[in-house]
Each structure stands twice: as structure tokens, then as C-alpha cells.
Design a binder for these strands. Structure first.
Lengths: 184, 184, 184, 184
DNA sequence: TATGAATGAGACTTCATTCAT
DNA sequence: AATGAATGAAGTCTCATTCAT
């Protein structure tokens, strides 16, 4: 049997570099960017990518996970504001807006957002965000400012179905349209 | 000038067969099926596909257009019911539900639905549907049962952003969530 | 056994129309123009082309033959002028210039010119031209103004190797360069 | 910036094999051979060809360039002989003869010769040859044995318009015909 | 362990020619 | 005799993945 060994130092460095470069490339060109593109942008060879990530899918998944972490950060910050008195309903809506806007210009976040709606990536990257979101929703429901039956997966679903590929004007109209979904 | 000549009988048969096969293939495998796939499924050679549709894009567009026609039919039927006393708000929602459900199992309709959201494919396939939809919305607004600022493009946007690739349970929840968007 | 029957009237008309259209198309787009292009430009179907010309090659050959006839006309005219006192050497050179210039803008004539050099199309289209050319050359040699060993095939060879696809300036330089080939 | 790294040993072998095979195939079948033809003749997959040459055009260009280098070698050799006393006029003519003869049996050299006439492929493969040629012509003009206004592009034009596709007898006659073009 | 060259199936499209109508 | 729809081989190029070095 094998205990999971800590990666060798240079291997760790490489993994980090791959992830960082892949993120940048996917943000810019979307998840259809070629593996060689990513490799050479990272100053590595494709073989090295494949050593760390057996499949392109795995690499993309890792990048997406990162983005979900970032979302978690944003959510926790929002919850922090709610705890300090900000209105939950407002924070929730603003969160939705920000994610949609950000994802529109960010191919990696776009995939992340869409993945969230799947319920797939929950453990463990989304756990923190989910918890924070649950608290915000709970607070809003407690104060009667958020729809009674709204759940965290509901919100993820809304994020995932946002018109991320449509022009700004369309995105804004969608956010306007969707607003009542959150309210009681 | 060129009067559109009626196609030869066998060519008509083949064109129909191509369209029908392409529809089936696109429904099942999405619009990325290969032309050869479609050709051999239709018992024809690729060249024949290209005789009828100069480009893969054109073939897909034809299939998508068919689907938009079907949508238009459904919409006009709904308007017919509203005219005979059915509640507009209800018909509108049911329409949304049906489209989402149908598109979920139908790669061709899926593309059609998403195309509608673009505003691109309007003429002439979507005109009928748009007109009917406008009447339904107008009726509902007249009777105060539909959100005052709702427009046809709004509805198309909702359709286009429906969770078409998600499991049935998710789709149903989304429809439930979205309901208040239509109401006053 | 079969005596070669005269073509039916409409078949003759069709053959003429095909030839005329093919000529126009080949002049404009070169001999790589598609059969369907020619067919539809002639208001006929490809099948009809193939009835008259078993092969694309045959059709092109027919067009080329026509052009060779035109060349023959030009040559006989030149000989006419020589007979009436024009200097043979000059007429010969001018003939060369004209053919090169004309062929540069005329895909059909271009092929014709190149074919001439082959010795292939001699009978019967080129016979007239060849005779006239022989007389011009003979006259020039008689008066000592044309290279003693120059023959008709030589001239065809020069025509065939003209820089027909090069820019005007290049063609003119080539004509200048080649001039001494004709002189004693 | 990118320093041109030495290719890996096996890649170098393959690149050489591709070039060699492509040359052979182009010599035999002309530049219209399929990439797959070349690939399988080289015992490789098409992808490998495309790794070394991003485009078919690039591969053909590489082969053609090789041929131009060979021409340059021949020209420099000729100039060497002129420097050691050989008559420039003779060397120039022999050069022309050799190129025409060689190109007639060599589809790759044929394209090379025709490319030269375009003035397109000058740098850097043709530079050497051009310089040597200029010296030969200059020498001949100095001694009064070569036409006063003859230039290097003129010679390339003659090479490019040689009857490369005609039978040997024709080519020889053409060379005979053309001889006076070089003389004063 | 890293490299990056090689793989090879598969995508779209064209066009001379055939043959059922 | 004419039509024009159908054929299908051939062509160029891409890219996730494998494996010899």
C-alpha cells in the first residue's frame, strides 16, 4: 500500500506553474485551447502536463476548481458584510450580478459557474462557498427579504444558466428579469 | 432571375430524407455529428448532402429552422387557447415548460432554442411564433396577470438560458424558480 | 457499318452553344473551370455536355481547336500583308507579339498556344495556319531577313513557351529578348 | 526571442527523411502529390509532416529551395570555370542547357526553375546563384561575347520559360533556337 | 522525470463522371 | 435526347494522447 507522498519540490513547482498558465489560457481563450498552447505558454512540454493531469479534462477540472475557490472567497466576504448589517437580499443579488459579469469575461470562471449548477464539483472546493451562501440565504429568509424556499443549489443553478455568452446589454436584462426569483 | 423550380421527385425524397436523418442525428448527438455520419445514416453519399446544402452550417440551419417552426406552431396553438378563454399567464408558463422539456431531449431543438435567444434567426421562421407570443403577453398584461415590462425577447432569453443539459429534476426546479419572472 | 450522320438540328444547336459557352468560361476562368459551371452558363445540364463531349478533356480540346482556327486566320491575314509587300520578318515578329499578348488575357488561347508547341493539334485545325506561316517564313528567308533554319514548329515552340502567366512588363522583355531568334 | 534549437536526433532524421521523400515524390509526380502519399512513402503519419511543415506549401517550398541551392552550386561552379579561363558565353549557354535538361526529368527542379522566373524566391536561396550568374554575364559582356543588355532576370526568365514538359528533341531545338538571345 | 516528436482518426469540402428518370 | 441528382475518392489540416529518447 502507498501513503500519498508529498510531491517532490520541483514537481510541485511544475504543477503550480501548469495550473497558473492553464488558468490564464483558459481565461483568455476558453477551455478549447490546445494542450500544446498551454504547455508552451508554461515553458514546458505536453508530456509534463500529462504527467500531472492524465487528461485534458482533469487539467480543466483543476482550473475550474480554483475558480470555485475564488467564488467561495467572494461568498464568504458577502456573508461577512451581511453579518455586519448589510441586507442579505441585496448581497445575494449583487453576488449573482458580479458572478455573471465576471464570468462573461473569463472563460475559466464561465466553466466554473456552469459546473456549479451541476452539483458535480461540490466536494470539497465548493463547501466553503456553499456554507456562506446558506448563511446569507438563511439570514434573508429570517428577515423575510428572501424567498422562503430558495436553496443554495437554486442559486448555483441560476448562476449556471446566466447568459454568459451574450452581450452586456442582454446580461443586464437577464439579471433584471431574474430578480424576482430571489424575493419572497 | 431564377424561379424556384420544383425539385425532381427523387431529389425531393432525398432532400426530405437528408433533413429527416440530419434531424434525428442532431437530436441524438448534437450539431457536431459528422457529415459522413448523417450521410451514411441516410443511405447516401456525402456529395449528395452537399448538393442539397452547400455547407454543413446550412444543413444544421435547416434542421434548426424546422424546430423553430415547430415552436411557432406550439405558440400559435397556445395563443389560440388564450383567445378562447385560457389564462394567458398560465399558457405562457406552460409554453416555457414545454419548450424546456422538449429541448432537453432534443439536440436540434436545443440549438433552436439557444438560437432564438440570439435574436439572429428571426426571419422568417420565428416571425409567426414571435407574433403569437406577443399577443399572449399582451393579453396577459391587459388582464394584469403578466409582468408589465415583459417582452418577447425576454422570453426567448429565458428559453435560451434554460438548463437544457441538466437532469429532469433540475429542469423542473428551474422552471419553478423562474416562475415569478413572468408575474406582475 | 455506320456512315457519320449529320447531327440533328437541335443537337447541332446545343453543340454550338456548349462550345461558345465553354470558350467564354475558359477564356475567363481558365481550363480548370468546372463542368457544371459551363453547363449552367450554357443553360444546359452537365449530362448534355457529356453527350457531346465524352470527357472534359474533349470539350477543352474542342475549344482549343477553335482558338487555333482563330490563330490560323490571323496568320493568313499576315501572309496576305506580306504578299502585298509588307516585310516578312516584321510580320512574323508582330504575329508573335500579338499571340503572346492575346494569350495572356485569354485562358483558352493560352492553352491553344501551348498546345501548338506540342505538335499535337496539327491536323486539321492548324494546317491552314501552318501553311501561311510557312509561306511567311519562306518569303523572309528568300529575302534574307529571317533566320535560315527557322521552321514553323520552331515558331510554335516559341509561342508555346511565352511567359503567358507573367506580368505585362515581363512579357515585353521576353519578346525583346527573343527577337534575335528570328533574325539571320 | 527564440534561439533556433537543434532538433532532437530522431526528429532530425525524420525531417531529413520527409524532405528526401517529398523531393523524390515531387520529382516523380510533380508538386500535386498528396500529403498522405508523401507521408506513407516516408513511413510516417501525416501529422508528422505537418509538425515539420505547417502547410503543404511550406513543404513544397522547402523542396524547391533545395533545388535552387543545387542550381546555385552549379552556377558557382560555372563561374569558377570562367574565372579559370573558360569562355563566359559558352558557360552561360551550357548552364542554360543543363538546367533545362535537368528540370525536364525533375518535377521539383521544374518548379524551382519556374519560381526563379517570378523573382519571388530570391532570398536567400537564390542569392548565391544570382551573384555568380551576374559575374559570368559581366565577364562575357566585358569580353564582348555576351549581349550587352542581358541581365540575370532575363536568364531566369529564359530558364522559366523553357519547354520543360516537351520531349528531348524539342528541348534541344529550343536551346538551339534561343542561342542568339545570349549573343551580342 | 521531462521532453516533444509521432500518431492517426476524423473533420469539411470539391468535382469529374455516371445513370435513373 | 436531355436532365440533374448521386456518387465517392481525394485533398488539406487539427489535436488529444502516447511513447521512445
Amino acid at each position: 500500500m502507498h501513503v500519498k507522498q508529498p510531491l517532490r519540490a520541483d514537481a510541485q513547482r511544475n504543477r503550480a506553474r501548469i495550473l497558473q498558465t492553464a488558468r490564464a489560457q483558459i481565461i483568455e481563450h476558453g477551455p478549447d485551447v490546445g494542450m500544446s498552447e498551454i504547455a508552451s505558454a508554461a515553458g514546458l512540454a505536453v508530456g509534463t502536463l500529462y504527467r500531472h493531469f492524465p487528461t485534458k479534462t482533469d487539467l480543466v477540472a483543476a482550473v475550474v476548481t480554483e475558480q470555485i475557490e475564488r467564488l467561495a472567497d467572494a461568498t464568504e466576504a458577502a456573508w461577512g458584510r451581511v453579518e455586519t448589517g448589510a441586507p442579505a437580499s441585496e448581497e445575494l443579488y449583487v453576488f449573482l450580478c458580479r458572478v455573471v459579469e465576471a464570468a462573461a469575461d473569463n472563460g475559466a470562471l464561465k466553466v466554473a459557474a456552469q459546473t456549479l449548477g451541476t452539483g458535480f464539483a461540490c466536494p470539497p472546493a465548493a463547501v466553503r462557498g456553499t456554507a456562506a451562501l446558506r448563511k446569507i440565504i438563511g439570514a434573508g429568509q429570517g428577515s423575510g427579504s428572501i424567498r422562503e424556499d430558495l436553496t443554495v443549489p437554486d442559486l448555483y443553478l441560476l448562476v449556471a444558466t446566466g447568459p454568459l455568452d451574450h452581450p452586456k446589454q442582454t446580461r443586464e436584462r437577464w439579471l433584471e428579469l431574474i430578480r424576482p426569483c430571489l424575493l419572497p
